[in-house]
Design a protein around this nucleic acid. Structure first.
Length: 499
RNA sequence: GCGGACAUAGUGUAGUGGUUAGCACGCAAGCUUCCCAAGCUUGCAACCCGGGUUCAAAUCCCGGUGUCCGCACCA
C-alpha cells in the first residue's frame, strides 16, 4: 500500500491524525482515534501475550516516564545520546564533530565525552570540508532527550525516558526479590518514550513520542534455560553480517539450529530471535517473504551489543526494508553500569553460591511502526472497496451490528449489540446509509464480521453474519454467532508457548 | 538542521489578481430499499497561520507552521 492511499484512508476513518492539528500540527506527534487506538492496544496485548507467555519467569511492569539525570548518566545516554554538531559559518553546512575528528585521523573518538570533543576541536584550525572557506563553529551538543526541571524550584534535573529498557534495569533488584530469586527473569514494558529527533518523518516511523514494547531478559549465560531451544527445522530469512561481508544483499533461509551447533550464535539468542520472527509472521501476519532478519556488523551496532539482529519488514509505502524491532545481546553492560552508577551491587548469588552479574537479552519493538506496517501490509485497494485484512484479534472491533432497515430492525439490533457487548465482544453498530455502504465502512477499518438484522431476525431470531474477507454470508442464531466470533478472536496459534 | 517541492470542505481535487471558490466521493435529514458505497429530494462542509503589495489576494511577496523528497541524523 502506498503512503498517500494509506494516509488518506487513516484520516478518512479517523485511525490517526496529527497532534494539535487545528493549530497546524506538531512535528513528530500523532494522535490515534477510535480505530487506531484499538488496533494499537490489540497489538500491544498480542505482543504481551506472546512474549510474556514465553516463560513463567517473564513479568510485566509499568514504570514512570520520567527518569532522574543520574540514571541517564550511568546508562551513557547523557554522553552518547547526543550528537556534537558543528556548523560552517560560511555555507551553513552542519557536521558531526566526532565524524570530522575521525576523518582527520584522531583516534578513539568513540569513547570521547562531549567536553573532550570540544577540546580536540578547539585545537584544530580546519576549514569547512564542504566549501573549504568557512570556519567551523565550536561543537554544540544536541541531546536527543527531552529535559525536565522537576519540582517548584526546578532543582532536580530529569528527562523523559528515551527508551523503556532503563526502567527494567532499575527494577531488577526489586524484581529479583519479589519474583523469588530465579534466573532467567524477564521484564516486559509497553510504554511511551521520547526522543527529540532532528527530522521526524514518514508519519509513524520517526516520531518524537512513540510507544515501545520491550522485553529485557536477565539470565546466566553459562546456564540458560533448558526450554530455550529452537525447533530442529526452524528456518528464518536472514541476512547475516558474514554473508553481507561476502557481498550478499538478499536474505536467505537459514537453519537456526545449525548456527547454534556451529557456534555462530548462542542457543538463547537463536531461540528468542526465532520467537520474535514468529511474532511478526504468525501473530501480525506479515508475509514470510517480506520479513528479514538483518544482522548488524561490528561497525553498525552499538558497542555494548554483542549480537544484534534487526527484524525488518519490506514496506511499499517506505520503499524497502525497515526496522520494526530488534534483538540485542547486551551482555552485562547494563547492570554493571547501574551497579557503578547507583553504588549498589546488582550482582546476584544463585542457589549453589554462584555469584554473577546477569546478562541481558533485549527484545525491542516499535509499536507505532507496526501499526503503520499493519496498514501497509494488510490494507488492500480492491476494485470496488478498500479492505483492511487485519488478523481478527487485532481488528478494532470483531463485528458491526447492522439493522437492514433501521426503522424496522433497529430495536432488535440494539438488543443484539448489547448482548454481544455483555458477552465481552468489541462490537459497533451502524444504522446510517445503505447496507452496502455500511459493509464498506467496516471493511476499511478491518472489522472482520458484519451481523445483519433482517425480517427473519424478527420471526426466527436468526441473523446473517458476513465475513469481511470473502463477503460471504451465513445465517445463524445468537449462539451460532457467538461461537463464530469466539473462534475469530482467538489467535489461530496458541498465544503463549508455541507447540 | 540544510536544500527542493507542496499546503483549497472529512477524503481526493479544480481554480494564474475581481468566481455566490467548482467537481467527485463523503457526511446529515427525508423518501425508497430485505443485503454489498444503488436511486430521488434537501442540506452540511474548505482557501494552514501571520504580515505585506494592491482599489481588490486562494492566486503575488516575506515570515512562521506542517507534509513529502534528497542530504545529514536514527545512541
Amino acid at each position: 500500500m502506498d503512503t498517500d492511499t494509506l494516509m488518506a484512508s487513516f484520516l478518512r476513518r479517523g485511525v490517526l491524525w496529527p497532534t494539535a492539528e487545528i493549530y497546524g500540527g506538531l512535528q513528530g506527534f500523532y494522535d490515534y482515534g477510535d480505530a487506531g487506538s484499538s488496533v494499537k492496544r490489540n497489538l500491544e496485548t498480542a505482543w504481551e501475550r506472546w512474549f510474556v507467555g514465553l516463560s513463567p519467569g517473564y513479568y510485566r511492569i509499568d514504570p514512570a516516564l520520567v527518569l532522574p539525570e543520574s540514571v541517564l548518566r550511568a546508562s551513557g545516554h547523557l554522553d552518547n545520546f547526543s550528537d556534537p554538531l558543528v556548523a560552517c559559518d560560511a555555507c551553513g553546512e552542519r557536521f558531526r564533530a566526532d565524524s570530522l575528528l575521525e576523518e582527520w585521523g584522531i583516534k578513539d573518538v568513540e569513547g570521547l565525552k562531549v567536553e573532550e570533543i570540544q577540546a580536540q576541536f578547539s585545537q584544530s584550525e580546519r576549514k569547512c570540508p564542504k566549501c573549504g572557506k568557512g570556519r567551523l563553529t565550536p561543537p554544540k551538543a544536541f541531546n536527543l532527550m527531552f529535559g525536565l526541571d522537576i519540582g517548584p524550584e526546578g532543582r532536580e534535573r530529569g528527562y523523559l525516558r528515551p527508551e523503556t529498557a532503563q526502567s527494567s534495569y532499575l527494577a531488577f533488584s526489586r524484581l529479583w526479590n519479589v519474583m523469588r530469586k530465579k534466573l532467567p527473569l524477564g521484564v516486559a514494558v509497553v510504554g511511551r518514550v521520547y526522543r527529540n529527533e532532528i527530522a521526524p518523518r514518514q508519519v509513524l516511523f520517526r516520531l518524537r513520542e512513540f510507544t515501545q514494547a520491550e522485553l529485557q531478559i536477565f539470565f546466566d549465560p553459562e546456564a540458560p534455560s533448558p526450554s530455550w531451544q529452537v525447533p530442529p527445522d526452524a528456518r528464518v530469512p536472514a541476512l547475516t553480517a558474514r554473508s553481507r561481508a561476502q557481498g550478499a544483499n538478499r536474505a536467505e533461509p537459514v537453519a537456526l539450529r545449525q548456527l547454534v551447533e556451529s557456534g555462530e550464535m548462542p542457543g538463547f539468542y537463536a531461540y528468542h530471535l526465532y520467537m520474535a520472527y514468529r511474532f511478526y509472521r504468525d501473530v501480525l501476519g506479515y508475509p514470510e517473504g517480506q520479513i528479514r532478519l538483518f544482522e548488524k556488523n561490528d561497525r553498525e551496532r552499538a558497542f555494548y551489543n554483542r549480537i544484534q539482529y534487526d527484524i525488518e519488514l519490506n514496506l511499499e509505502s517506505l520503499g524497502g526494508f525497515k526496522e520494526m524491532g530488534a534483538v540485542h545481546y547486551r551482555g552485562d553492560y547494563d547492570l554493571s553500569r547501574h551497579s557503578e552508577g547507583s553504588k549498589s551491587d546488582l550482582g546476584v548469588t544463585l542457589d549453589g553460591g554462584k555469584h554473577l552479574i546477569p546478562h541481558v537479552l533485549e527484545l525491542t519493538f516499535g509499536v507505532d511502526r507496526n501499526v503503520w506496517g499493519l496498514g501497509d501490509v494488510h490494507l488492500h485497494n480492491e476494485k470496488d472497496r478498500i479492505v483492511w485484512s487485519l488478523p481478527p484479534y487485532l481488528a478494532p472491533a470483531v463485528a458491526g451490528v447492522l439493522p437492514l432497515i433501521p426503522k424496522e430492525h433497529g430495536p432488535i439490533a440494539t438488543m443484539l449489540y448489547h448482548t454481544l457487548r455483555t458477552e465481552g465482544f468489541r462490537v459497533s453498530m451502524d444504522e446510517s446509509g445503505s447496507i452496502g455502504r455500511r459493509y464498506a465502512r467496516l471493511d476499511e477499518i478491518g472489522v472482520p464480521f458484519a451481523i445483519t438484522v433482517d425480517r427473519e431476525s424478527l420471526s426466527a431470531q436468526t441473523y446473517t453474519i458476513r465475513s469481511r474477507d470473502g463477503k460471504d454470508q451465513v445465517r445463524g442464531s445468537i449462539s451460532d454467532i457467538l461461537s463464530i466470533l469466539r473462534k475469530a478472536v482467538v489467535s489461530p496459534l496458541s498465544m503463549g508457548n508455541p507447540p
